[in-house]
Amino acid sequence: MTAIVTAKNLSQIYELKRGMFAKPLALKAVKETSFTVEQGETLAIVGESGCGKSTLARMLTMIEPPTEGELTIDGIRIAEASDSDLKRLRSIVQIVFQNPYGALNPRQKVGAILEEPLKINTSLSAAERRERAEKMLAEVGLRPEHYGRYPHMFSGGQRQRIAIARAIMLEPKILVLDEPVSALDVSIQAQILNLLAELQERLGLTYIFISHDLSVVRHVATRVMVMYLGRPVEIAPVEELYANPLHPYTRALLAATPAARPGRRGARQRLTGELPSPINPPTGCAFHPRCPYADERTKRERPELTQHGKTMVACFAVDEGRLPPPDAAVVETPEPRA
């Protein structure tokens, strides 16, 4: 196992303009985030809106360079990469978006959508491109005759298949999946998850799977990174995270995820309060206003990620050993299907 992506102290700061004369506000979408992604694994990034997971996706796909920090992909440091290296990197990392309706150009036919990456990056002839595109259609479970159709003639699931096909046209090594199934219905979601799993097996892809849905993440991920307001709060292997969640936020997320088991409601602790604004985050640990274990120290100091067993967690309550064991109702494994 080798790290294919290494992120060190990655930060992304946006400036929000407030009219001509006011000083622009700094929005720190991602703050000093460090993590690695191993070749062939699926790293899930979990969090609610405003936690910086989509910003992270934009940095990983080189749509936006990080404001600070260092990103190394496939052995190349992005900040110092030459133009030809960058070009190679672009075909190594590809992305699939959440909304299959917005991700495909409505004025392009499916064939043109699939061939665009080849047109820009390779010198294949039109016939070769077409052949590849048709092969790819079959690969993602569509038919060759779909080649000449426009995106609006497809259902959401089929569009997501097209988006996936476009992403793997250049034979990438890393696929950033930005909530790829959250806009889809359950039955279609299962089809797409299966397709992704099959492609990963066959092509040896590395997935960075961004999601807010913990039940999906549990199914697909090998490791999980939980983010809150721009920082990772817990990084753990998937079994460990679900069996023994450490950070209070992770526990709250697990408790809030509705389970398809009637009568489970009310047995859990609920999180109070709203998500704070990333423009004006709380001092100390960003989670302290909503955390049941917060004390004076968490309001002043910010905990760093530290290793606890297989888990990396940023929480003083864990460090100080005053966190109770997780709520039984939360970590209970699902009943086996009848």
Binding site: G157, S187, R218, H219, V220, A260, R337
Partner: peptide, 23 residues
């Protein structure tokens, strides 16, 4: 029954049972 089976939280590893086709 198929809809329930397709939920990732009810699945145990491997592939999810799916419903082919669309509404």
């Amino acid at each position: 029954s198929a809809l329930l089976a397709a939920m990732p939280e009810r699945a145990r590893g491997g592939r999810l049972p799916t419903i082919p086709g669309v509404v």
